Amino acid sequence: MTRTAKRIPEDLPFVARPNLGKRALLLGAVTLLVGLVIACPLGLAVSADGDAAVLLVIPVIMLFFALLMGLQLWLVSSGGPVLAVGPDGLWIKTRPTRGQAIWLPWAAIDRIYLRRWSLEKMVCVKPRDPRAGTGLGAFTALDSGLQQAFFGTGFTATANFADRSEEEIMRAVVGYAAGRCRVG
């Protein structure tokens, strides 16, 4: 019925991969925002204090955040595709960062829907059997539990940070599901 793999195979008719450019733009904007939030109060403190050496903290903090964002970008984008859909079912990542994916035949899927959390819009796949995906390891269980809390399922794939548009992804899901599970 279900099976797992280290990466989503790319031989299905429809494959969605992470879009590095979109994600980098967002993470870069977050890094700059953090820099500004830190720079403004420090700039005010320096103008009152007169000690300009305090301003050296800003590039160090921004570099730290840039490194964290770079790590996050690498983790999200290096795990291969996020979703693959075909006539028999779909592959979806079991973790939002690195590899590991699960195959769910259409008969094993209860519902597929879109859910937004902050700037991220996710394709959510809810299996009929709530035990699907158990036994995949401690880190996967932790990630899956967090996703379950935010999205109602542990199986999610980005819709707005993928190399395909949200409409294209949902059109493929609806077409290949062919009424065998609820979509929407």
Rank of each mutant, 00 (worst) to 15 (best):
T2S: 11
K6F: 13
R7E: 12
I8G: 05
P9V: 05
E10G: 02
D11S: 04
A16W: 02
P18M: 03
L20N: 09
A24M: 03
L26R: 01
L27C: 01
A29F: 06
V30R: 07
G35R: 10
C40K: 10
P41A: 14
V46K: 14
D49H: 11
D49T: 07
G50D: 10
D51Y: 14
V54I: 14
V54G: 03
L56Y: 15
V57A: 15
P59S: 09
V60H: 03
I61F: 14
I61W: 07
M62I: 07
L63R: 05
F64S: 06
G70R: 14
Q72Y: 04
Q72F: 03
L73Y: 08
L73D: 01
V82K: 11
L83M: 04
G86E: 09
L90A: 13
W91S: 07
W91T: 05
W91H: 02
K93A: 08
K93T: 02
T94D: 13
T97Y: 15
R98V: 08
Q100M: 01
A101G: 04
W103F: 13
L104W: 14
I109L: 11
Y113H: 09
Y113T: 01
Y113N: 02
L114D: 03
R115D: 10
W117Y: 12
L119D: 01
E120I: 04
M122H: 08
V123R: 00
D129Q: 00
A132N: 03
G133M: 00
L136F: 09
G137Y: 03
F139G: 03
F139M: 14
D143W: 07
S144Q: 07
S144P: 01
G145Y: 12
A149H: 08
G152T: 02
T153S: 14
T156D: 12
A157G: 11
A159P: 02
A162C: 07
A162I: 00
E167I: 01
M170Q: 03
M170L: 15
A172L: 02
V173S: 05
V174Y: 01
Y176Q: 06
G179F: 12
G179L: 06
C181I: 02
V183F: 07
G184V: 13
G184P: 02
